[in-house]
């Protein structure tokens, strides 16, 4: 059993007239400190799977275990980064970063200090007193990262966190995020529709097919690319080759 285990998870969505099967029989093992990406055609239940792992929705069937314990009994938080930053516009950057500790009622001087260090580390230390609407999209997403990391999550879930950014910002942020995650030895799961991003960032890639979402294939990203930073990976010849493999597989599903 791995660090995170998803065991035979299926999920149904009900409406008054109909129901749809979003996920069917998903089983997954994630090692501690590894980075896994989930890709697949749109509507394949990627976000549903992420929400189940986060404990935000209960699956219709199946279980999720984190460190061999069922998810419901976890009391430490699971970090969740969304497509947009969703910073609270009426709170300044520092207050936004401290929202997790604030909710869990353990704001201490130590946590404040840690928040400052974290903001410095991701290069936005000077914005503590600013408000979100004074920051650019990339900076705001970095604040969202700090907000997620401050509570020491056991697991970090990323739901297309770079998709709303322009290409240049996205490349820079991929490097930064991966560096930070490696440093904190974070176990992370990224949902994306961008094959390139999945290859550049992760160690293994789970390919889902749609209606209902099932695991079609699991790829291990070649060692050479895993070693490199996301930006450098994209330049590597192995990258293009591997991209083709994943691309063809994804094509055959649609």
């Amino acid at each position: 059993m791995g660090y995170l285990t998803v065991e035979k998870v299926s999920h149904l969505y009900f409406t008054e007239k109909n129901f749809t099967k979003a996920l069917e029989d998903i089983s997954l093992d994630v090692k501690k400190g590894s980075f896994v990406s989930i890709i697949g055609p749109s509507g394949c239940g990627k976000t549903t799977l992420l929400s189940i792992i986060a404990g935000l929705i209960n699956p219709t069937q199946g279980n999720v275990f984190l460190e061999q314990k069922p998810l419901e009994r976890q009391n430490s938080s699971i970090g969740y980064m969304l497509q947009q930053d969703y910073l609270f516009p009426w709170k300044n950057i520092m207050e936004n970063v401290l929202i997790g500790p604030h909710i869990q009622k353990n704001i201490t001087n130590e946590i404040r200090q840690k928040a400052k260090e974290l903001l410095n580390e991701i290069g936005i230390g000077q914005t503590k007193e600013s408000y979100p609407d004074q920051l650019s999209g990339g900076m705001r997403q970095r604040v969202a990262l700090a907000r997620t990391l401050i509570t020491d999550p056991k697991l970090l879930l990323l739901d297309e966190p770079f998709s709303a950014l322009d290409y240049q910002t996205k490349l820079k942020l991929e490097n930064l995020v991966l560096n930070i995650l490696k440093k904190y030895q974070m176990t992370s799961i990224l949902v994306t529709h961008d094959i390139g991003e999945a290859i550049a960032m992760s160690e293994s890639i789970v390919l889902l097919n749609s209606n209902p979402g099932r695991i079609a294939n699991v790829f291990d990203v070649p060692e050479e690319i895993v070693e490199l930073s996301p930006f450098d990976s994209r330049q590597s010849p192995v990258y293009s080759e591997f991209f083709q493999t994943v691309w063809k597989e994804l094509e055959s599903l649609e």
């Binding site: 986060a54 935000l56 969740y80 969304l82 947009q84 609270f88 929202i99 997790g100 909710i103 509570t151």
Partner: peptide, 24 residues
């Protein structure tokens, strides 16, 4: 909904969600 999702990921109670997101 996503503001609520952010707060829920920190295990916020319904009162906290109301105070931190809904009301402001």
């Amino acid at each position: 909904e996503n503001y609520i999702k952010v707060l829920q990921s920190f295990q916020a109670t319904r009162t906290q969600i109301f105070k931190e997101a809904i009301l402001p």
